[in-house]
Design a protein around this nucleic acid. Structure first.
Length: 277
DNA sequence: CTTCACGCCTGTCAGC
DNA sequence: TGCTGACAGGCGTGAA
């Protein structure tokens, strides 16, 4: 569910609440979400350790623990991480609960149970292929027109699919890809290798604008997303195409069309984003 | 190497 | 009103 701006929002919130806390107990209520090591080892290796720092890489959260261990969490479609203080009781929907010795806790919940949790040594992060193969993130220096030009030239696939490839760009998901293509005036089925320089410049600016704006608004709550305190984001009010099938394009008033591209629901304005011939 | 179809799960909602 | 299936912020796998 969450894309880069949502995971960033969660990361900023949790950093203020869990860094420095020591884990007293780990309650694994749905063991199959723990991909590595065994749930028993996952628990025993974490108890007694302290969260030393928290970072985000694309849509992954990395909790650095004492002893050079790292808790890696990917929220997939419906994962959520909540912090609760010592006056609140545990949520019955929680799948994994990290209790601190101060009486508060961080709870992982996940309706569709597609999320993944790992506990690895710093030197073993390469066990998670999706993490080590990540491409540059929007807003980074590496996310340059030169990088995009070179990459697009080698890709015959549809631009939407290429933008969703985490090994090419880390952090974009379905909402922000649709919004970025809309802002850049590009049809989602354009073949990546047909983009000319001016279009690539526009697309890069559109991606950066949309991602930066959404981070400022604490992400997009289209249905499930909540931050670490249970609050909704604000960027859903700024969406131009995503989830707006049949509604007027904010630029030209044409009805937004929904179609399937690369197996994903795709929204675009047929007037502003012209069909490739 | 890239590209594509499919599977994983459960809850919700459009459409009959 | 009640049912049903299509679909949902993602990604890993295996086949072509």
């Amino acid at each position: 569910m969450p894309e880069m701006p949502e995971v960033e929002t969660i990361c900023r919130f949790l950093r203020e609440h869990v860094v420095g806390k020591t884990i007293a107990e780990v309650d694994i209520r749905l063991p199959r979400l723990v991909k590595w090591p065994s749930p028993g080892d996952f628990r025993s290796l974490m108890v007694g350790r302290t969260f030393e720092s928290l970072e985000r890489r694309a849509k992954y959260l990395l909790f650095h623990l004492s002893g050079e261990w790292v808790l890696v969490i990917h929220l997939r479609m419906t994962g959520r991480l909540f912090y609760r203080d010592n006056s609140q009781s545990s949520n019955g929907c929680a799948r994994v609960v990290f209790e601190f010795n101060t009486g508060d806790a961080m709870e992982y919940s996940d309706t569709r149970t597609l999320g993944t949790l790992y506990l690895l040594k710093e030197t073993e992060l390469n066990r998670i292929y999706g993490l080590t193969s990540l491409g540059p993130e929007p807003l980074s220096a590496e996310f340059s027109t030169e990088y995009l030009t070179a990459g697009f030239a080698k890709r015959k696939g549809k631009i939407k699919t290429v933008l969703l490839d985490q090994a090419f760009i880390g952090g974009l998901g379905n909402i922000y890809v649709d919004e970025s293509l809309s802002r850049a005036g590009l049809h989602p089925e354009r073949r990546a290798n047909t983009l000319v320089e001016a279009e690539i410049v526009r697309l890069r600016e559109a991606v950066n604008f949309v991602i930066e704006k959404s981070i400022c608004e604490n992400g997009t709550t289209f249905r499930d997303y909540r931050d670490g305190a249970g609050n909704k984001g604000g960027f859903q009010n700024e969406l131009c195409v995503y989830g707006r099938k049949g509604m007027p394009c904010p630029v030209c008033g044409t009805a937004i069309v929904k179609m399937e591209v690369g197996g994903r629901g795709t929204h675009f304005c047929p007037h502003c984003q012209q069909e490739p011939r």
